[in-house]
Amino acid sequence: MDTELIKIDLSVDSGEGVIKELGQLMTGKEYVKQGYIEAVLKREAVLPTGLNIGGTCVAIPHTDPIYVNEAAIAVGRLCKPVKFHNMINPDEVLDVKVVFLLAVKNPQSQVELLKKLMALFQNIELLQQIEKAQKKETIAGIIEKAIQ
């Protein structure tokens, strides 16, 4: 997990802002191709990725592997929550505190990664550790351990 793809106390006003900020980190390090950010935004508008996990809300925006050079996860922990539509009920708007922007290269591994992330999200204690962590390395360690 590349700690340079983790933003602690990210200050943006919207889900779109988070996707752009984290997407620029990925683009700058060439994990993703030009057009990735726009493709994620387009997909998010049609297939939202917000999840309410026992009172804590997260989002896992992503797009097609054709925009990905190398698999990566960018994480944004927000100063104040931003709005994402709920994956389960798209009419519901959630206040998301942590965003996991995914760049998945292999479509088969996407399903496996999403399963592992869901297991991480269901562990409220680990999610709270990510919310409170003061160091990028702490967040990276929690995620690495969860997705191995």
Rank of each mutant, 00 (worst) to 15 (best):
V18Y: 06
V98R: 14
K7I: 03
A103M: 05
D9C: 07
K20T: 12
V99E: 09
V32C: 11
S109C: 07
Y67A: 14
E30Y: 06
E112Y: 09
N123V: 06
L120Q: 05
K80W: 03
S109Q: 15
P90L: 08
L120R: 04
H85W: 02
Q108H: 01
V75W: 11
I60P: 14
K116R: 06
V18Q: 09
L127Q: 04
V12H: 05
A45G: 06
H85N: 07
I8K: 10
C57G: 13
F84T: 14
G50Q: 09
K116Q: 02
Q34C: 01
E21P: 00
I37L: 07
H85Y: 06
V93K: 10
G54N: 15
G55S: 08
Q128E: 14
K33Y: 01
I73S: 13
N89C: 00
L120V: 02
T56F: 06
V104N: 11
G28E: 06
I6M: 10
P81M: 07
L78T: 12
V104T: 14
K29F: 08
S109R: 14
V96F: 05
R43N: 13
Y67W: 15
E38V: 06
Q110W: 05
P48S: 04
I124N: 15
L113G: 05
K20W: 00
G28L: 03
S109I: 10
E38Q: 11
E16K: 15
P107D: 13
I124C: 06
L114N: 09
D13N: 15
P90C: 08
D13K: 14
K20F: 01
T49A: 01
V75L: 12
P48N: 05
L114D: 07
Y67D: 14
A39W: 09
L117C: 05
V18W: 03
T56Y: 08
Q128T: 11
K20M: 05
Y31T: 03
E16N: 15
K42P: 02
V98F: 11
G55P: 02
K33E: 06
I53H: 05
G55Y: 01
I19E: 05
I73T: 14
I88S: 10
V96K: 05
A45M: 08
L22I: 10
E30F: 04
N123P: 05
L120D: 02
Q24K: 01
L127C: 03
G50C: 08
S11G: 02
N89F: 00
G35I: 11
Q24I: 00
G76K: 05
